Simulated assay, not measured.
Amino acid sequence: MSKKELEAESYFSKDFSWDELREEVENNPSFQFHLHPYSSKRTANQNHNALKNAEAWDKFHACHSSGKFFKERRYLLKEFPELASCGENKKVLEVGCGNGSTILPILRGHESIIVYACDCSDEALERTKEIIGAADSIPAKHRFHPFLWDFSNRFPSWLACHSCSGTSSGTNSRDEMGMLNPSCYNEIECCIGGVDFVTLIFTLSALPVDRMPTAIAQCFGVLKPGGLLLFRDYGLYDMTMLRFKAEQQVGYREYMRSEETRSYFFCLDTVRNLASAAGFIEVELEYCCVKSVNRRTGRMMKRVWVHGKFQKPGGEIE
């Protein structure tokens, strides 16, 4: 993507004050249940193990498989210009790739960047492959490598291992889009020695809170020294949070949708503490406060996201 194209992507992140929104929400009686410590008596036990999480997201993506649901994140290179300005053949791990809305601008933005993309949902991966395969002017066959994985578990060793000295004797099973067969993780032709970037875009919030520290630690583990974790997720008092009903609450600031997918809403301190505990150095961390208009109803919506960049110590990104 040219500099002119990047500049053409208009994006604003300070449409309103988060502190003013906080005051507005905390003074509204109808929102009080969002503010108080969660009581487990409100709902039945919601044990959301890894298998159930994958099944829930399969259901979600099956229900939202139409083209209308896909919206390319064109703002991404504005928020994370490192992805467009980095050196040749840099590697990105896109965690929780969903329908590929993050992958497409990354591949468009740099002609030699290599993207490894994982998701716990088969439905999501199939949708991603279709979208990337159909994209015009993106030779992605050797730059896009999707694989099925729940990132709250330990990542496959081929992502970060440095002990490989050549081609493995095992067979590496891939399809025409480079899709790795889950049964062949230990037989990959060659480990890739870590990645330069991990993109964690609206993914961490989908995990149960108690699994978040392990997930962030896994992201730290697969990054090269000096590598960057690029983070964006739902922020506290986002419009979506305020739409949830009390009976949908399954934890403090944590909610469950009808298809049993989860959503957590972050404050800055929560993200900061998770990243610091994993060993990251904070580079940027702030609320993005954006006003958007529902085209059908004309209603103004206040969206809040947390934007962050965190670096693994020990080196620099070119």
Rank of each mutant, 00 (worst) to 15 (best):
L77V: 12
F244T: 06
E318P: 15
D175M: 12
E282A: 12
V198S: 10
F310Q: 08
I188E: 04
F244V: 06
G221F: 01
I188C: 13
M179R: 06
N47A: 13
Y255G: 07
D233V: 09
F231V: 08
S85C: 05
F147Y: 10
M241K: 06
V198I: 13
Y38I: 04
C120N: 01
I113S: 01
P213S: 09
T203W: 02
L268M: 10
S112T: 15
C97L: 10
D196L: 02
T167L: 12
Q46E: 10
W158G: 00
V283Y: 09
V304D: 01
S137N: 14
Y185I: 00
P225I: 12
S40G: 05
K90P: 00
E176S: 08
M239A: 14
A217P: 01
R232L: 09
P313R: 08
K59V: 13
D233Q: 02
H48G: 00
E72V: 12
K90T: 04
L35T: 13
E82S: 14
G67V: 00
W305K: 00
D119A: 07
D136M: 02
R174D: 03
R295W: 11
K3M: 08
L285D: 14
G227T: 11
S10H: 11
K91Q: 13
R127M: 11
S112E: 15
F280M: 05
T199K: 02
L35F: 05
G308Q: 04
V198A: 08
E5D: 14
V222L: 03
Y264T: 08
D175E: 13
N99P: 02
R232F: 15
Y237P: 02
S17N: 10
T270C: 01
L107Q: 07
D175H: 06
S13N: 07
P213V: 07
A246Y: 13
K52A: 13
Y287W: 04
A54I: 08
A217L: 05
Q218N: 14
F220A: 05
Y255E: 03
A117I: 09
L76Y: 10
Y75W: 13
H307I: 15
F155V: 05
Q311S: 13
